[in-house]
Amino acid sequence: MNLRGVLIEDTFAEAFNMSAARVVVTAVNARWARAAAQALTGFATSIIACKCEAAIERDLTPAETPDGRPGISALFFAMEPVGLGKRLVERIGHTVLTCPTTSCFDGLPDAVERVTPGRALRVFGDRFQISKVVGGRRYWRVPVMEGEFLVQESFGVLKNGVGGGNFLILAEDEASALAAAEAAVAAISGVPGVILPFPGGVARSGSKIGARGYASLIASTNDAYCPTLRASTDSALPDGVNSVLELVLDGVDADAIRRAMRAGIDAACLPGVRAITAGNYGGNLGKHKFHLHAIMNGTS
């Protein structure tokens, strides 16, 4: 398949089921909401070392938030609900609770599976905390030096979240790869239910499972796609490709991943890009296979 002169390789991205949560942070203004959300989702690029993957999903208008203030929604992904709940306790407790003017709400009110980070965080109030039920949902008022921190008790969890959707941009040079990646990030940013957990939405250091030289490593550089190793390894790079960037996507479901990959790949097909491919493990590990041709044809 060729899209505006860019080869779309006949391959697939292999992805996994993950548990997903959506956290809504509000504040007195968008600046403080973003400050909290950025800290909340920091160092959450890969579950390999970060214990979860997370990123800002989108800005929320006051009309979209429970307390009518500017807000931000962030998505979190972990391998199972219990672990996800622990990550929410750690992260909300050390980033949102600490940030001036913020409140913290569940963004998946219809989800049946629940974790209760608010119940754990309430004890920071040292028995001065107060519970309130509004609209059938319980909130905790935790006294803090500024005034009060308000946090919802339970957060919904989607067990059919998907982590590890991806595609690789194979370009003639660094500038072309970066321009294409930025265009793809911009296109995906408008797709609801999807995040790109790496810095700026882009990863330059795609990995393979394990390592050939270090037995203890669970992941190491994806040498097949490293241009500098073309002469030293079993390279997968076509001629003329001198830089590769990867977009890794996590979504609330497989459809969200498909929509985002379609938008991102389409946007990434710019001058200087030779090919788009995807990372997989042979199809034996992940439940989900996102075939690039089917996605771009709209048949998947």
Partner: peptide, 10 residues
């Protein structure tokens, strides 16, 4: 109080 804001908005 943030819960007053939440309650009144609700």
């Amino acid at each position: 109080p943030p819960h007053v804001r939440l309650t009144l908005t609700y």
